[in-house]
Design a protein around this nucleic acid. Structure first.
Lengths: 170, 170
DNA sequence: AGTTTAAGTCAGCCTTGTTGACATTCCAAT
DNA sequence: ATTGGAATGTCAACAAGGCTGACTTAAACT
């Protein structure tokens, strides 16, 4: 505990960044950063009838237009009952469109309407603005490290859903 | 969208890491990584009667033993009613001790009991294990960048509560 | 003495997660 | 053609953990 990260002990940086104290600081940084990261969209959604769950659904429908409910379920990691409640209000409010599948008519393919895309843009722009500012402040090398650590932290199954890898490494 | 991060266009890395697509990938990486990051403690708490709210309280009481209820409130960013519900069960279950302040008897100073410290260690070790693995995989330079970006992303008021800065820069 | 502050409590509401049971629709295999 | 299973949707009930508002108690400040 007394051995802070600034210490220039014999171990050098190669080992020092793995001390419990360093790890604890990383844990706390994740907590505070994630809180800030969700704060802006939360503020926007507060005015409407929506919450974070709606944001997540809108985001992933935007990323993967035409995705099925089942696929969205596995990405979001919630029950179909939870997702359905959210999805129903979004469809009722005309933000999301549910199209019956052609090949498999049991499936519903989800798309954003124009209004849905507009809200998506508003929400994501708020998040992008914060991330853009953080990226600018930290610099490109820090950003590369940031991404590497986050990717290493994900569960392998979740990494499958993570579109960043497809684009970045493809 | 067609311009992935791997593209070696004329802009070079100095500008390319600020494209909307890059930012979107950062946003998604935060989402999936944070989910993984909280999954392990959540699993442990599921067996007990506790949730993520209890974990947060235990964490910050561990970091700042003797902290007052009001201080904890401002760190966690919840209402006293919400915190009180959590705190009450932790005190009843003998994980947290509430001591009347000496200088100001209105204040209650919070401490973990031995049992509380044991649970804290179990929870934080699960998180440290994941972070340690990610840090190892990404390397020290990536870790430094990771921390820089997270710190830049925090709200300034939250940065006050963030103990990493005190230790790292002090 | 009167006001403010710290903490706690009660009641009620909302969002978002959970189970379990069940209906419908459709594909696919027998 | 019928049956089995998969995908979807719905109803009901429940819990965690946020929130607001109103109110009390005790202590400290002015």
């Amino acid at each position: 505990m007394a051995d802070g990260p600034g210490s220039q002990g014999h171990g050098g940086e190669l080992l020092l960044y793995l001390t419990d104290e360093q790890l604890r600081q990383g844990i706390e940084a994740m907590f505070f950063a994630y809180r800030a990261f969700t704060a802006d969209p939360d503020r926007i959604l507060q005015g409407l009838q929506y919450g974070r769950a709606h944001h997540r659904a809108i985001h992933f429908i935007h990323i993967a237009p035409g995705t099925t409910v089942n696929n969205l379920l596995s990405i979001l990691g919630v029950t179909k009952q939870s997702l359905n409640r959210v999805l129903r209000t979004l469809i009722e409010d005309g933000l999301v469109e549910s199209r019956v599948g052609r090949a498999d008519k049991r499936e519903r393919h989800l798309h954003l309407t124009e209004a849905g895309a507009a809200l998506e843009h508003q929400l994501s722009e708020a998040q992008r603005a914060r991330m853009r500012a953080a990226y600018r402040q930290a610099g490109p090398e820090a950003v590369a490290g940031f991404r590497r650590v986050l990717e290493a932290m994900m569960d392998p199954e979740m990494r499958r859903h993570y579109s960043g890898l497809r684009e970045a490494r493809g």
